[in-house]
Structure formats: structure tokens, C-alpha cells
Simulated scan of single mutants.
Amino acid sequence: MKIALTGGTGLVGRFLADAARAAGHEVTLLSRNPAPGGLRYDLAGEVPDLAGYDALIHAAFQHAPGRYRGGEGTDPAGFLAANRDGSLRLFAAARKAGVGRALFLSTRAVYGRHPAGTVLIEDTPLRPDTLYGQMKADVEQGLAALSSPDFSTASLRATGVYGPGADHKWITLFNDFRAGRPIAPRVATEVHGDDLAAAALLLLNAPAQALAPHAFNVSDLTLDLHDLLAEVAQLTGCAAPLPPRADAAQVSAMDCTRLRALGWRPGGWPLLRASLPAMLD
């Protein structure tokens, strides 16, 4: 399969790029500063010619440095123009070019606030309470509206994505813990980047009718920092105090039955433990 991928050099996109190539697909990266063989693309700019591609995976996201929620910084209009309008322009161009399938990297933030402990299924009402979540919800809905027999679409509502990499999400956390700095209690849902990529590949290859619901939750662990840092302490010999446990009952878990029905099996704790040494180097 010939795949066009935006955001393929980013924190999450690199997992998608590596997995697609490992599966034997031909991957072209669309980016601001493309490597040889890539295509120049900016969310705020013109869409390159996508004729001849079988699929598009859109994982690019323009935001203030280091921020997702709150990523609009001081320019909400520019944030929406790039991420909402630019994404919909990209998908419309892909459909016009004859691309057969499009996937969008969305987020659990589209659900917004629900009562503590609510199990989030894809049919749970969307109540985004950030501009980031609202933008993602708008793109989801716009993409679904573009779907047709010749252009099947799906959005992956991913929770927090972890995994090895020079800029992985827990670098500051691990450094603070090993330095003995206090860590606030927290529990949250997480998924490994490899598992997210596996979900994307499943959706690329699934029958078109399987994508008709258009949205798929992607989540694995409900992870307390106490337990995560206990693993770090065991690996490193760090004797710093662990944070107290957080109240897991306050977390709304994501139900992934829809994705599991297609054969998705995330790695759980074994994959987390196997990944930690590389994340601690």
C-alpha cells in the first residue's frame, strides 16, 4: 500500500511511520522540511498532489511548543485555521485525488468532562472543554461527512501516547523523580505508540464497512504514577519517595471493544515494562 503520512517525524507519528514501513508499505512523509522522497506540506498551506496514494494518515498538529491542550497559545484563530480548516482541506484534497482511505489521529479530549468513572464508548456524547478537543471533534465530523464508497474514513481517539524516543512524554517526570523532586499524584489512561500504530494498520486494512462507525477509541492502561515510578525505582535503584496513589475512581476509562473486535490486542504492562529501559537511557 502506498501511504501518505503527515506528522511522521513527531512524537506520535514516528511510531506510525516505523510500523507502516515494517509492514511492507511504501510511506511518503508530508512535512515542512521533507527528507528526500517526501513532500513539502504545511497545515496552513497548499496540499500537495496525492494522486496515486492508496491511503492518507493525518497525524500532524500545529501547536504552541510542548502543549496540546492549550496548544493555541495566544492565537486561537490561527490554531483553528491550521488544524481544523487545514485538516479538512487536506482530506477534501485526498478524496478528490482518488485516495481510497483516510485516517485521522484524534484524541480522547473530544469527550471533555463527564461524571467521574464514566466509561467512555464511541457513542458517548462529545463535550470538549478545550479548544484542542473542539478542534479535533470538528475535524472528526468533517471527515466523516466526506466519507463515501470510494473514500472510507476513520478517526482514532487516542489517549496519552507513550514509548521510547529522544523526546518521549515522561522525560521530565523521570528526571524529576530520580533527582528527588516531589511528584504530584496522578492516574491517567495511556497507550503505547506501537499499539496505536497497530490500530492504524488494522483500520487501513479492514473492510470498508468496518469503518462505518468512523471513530475508534485507542487506550490500554489506566496507569498510576505511583506504579510507573515504582518500576523506574526498581530498574534504576532510585530511592526517592514514590508519590501517593491517586484516586483511580476519578478516571474515565475508554472502552475499546470496537477496535478489539477487529483483532487489536494492546501490550499492557508487559509492553510498558519492556519499553522502560530504553526510556531511561
Rank of each mutant, 00 (worst) to 15 (best):
R258I: 05
G117H: 01
F174H: 10
L88G: 01
V119L: 07
G38S: 04
L262G: 07
L211T: 00
A206R: 02
F15E: 00
A230V: 02
V232L: 12
A278N: 00
A44K: 03
V12F: 12
A144I: 08
A212K: 14
A55P: 00
A144K: 02
L131V: 13
Q250K: 04
A210Q: 10
L120D: 11
E190K: 05
R67A: 14
L126Y: 14
P36E: 08
R113N: 14
L225A: 03
H192T: 00
L229V: 06
G160D: 10
T222C: 10
W269D: 10
M279A: 02
G37P: 00
A154M: 09
G263M: 07
I171R: 11
T130A: 10
Q134C: 13
A145K: 09
D18A: 15
F61G: 05
D150I: 06
A4K: 02
P76K: 02
F91A: 06
R260A: 05
A215G: 04
G142E: 03
R260T: 15
V47L: 09
G112R: 02
G71Q: 05
L242I: 05
R245S: 02
I183P: 09
L30R: 08
S87I: 13
N205V: 02
A44C: 09
A261W: 01
G133I: 12
R113F: 12
G237S: 03
G163H: 09
V251S: 04
C238R: 08
T172G: 13
A23E: 09
T130Y: 08
R113T: 15
A19D: 12
A233T: 11
T9E: 07
D176T: 13
T6S: 11
G163S: 14
L80G: 04
L211P: 02
D247Q: 05
A144Y: 00
P76M: 04
G98N: 00
L221Y: 11
T222W: 05
A20D: 03
H114Q: 15
S152Q: 09
K169P: 06
T6M: 14
Y132T: 01
L5E: 00
D281P: 14
L11C: 11
D194T: 15
A17E: 06
A215V: 15
H214D: 09
L280P: 08
A206E: 01
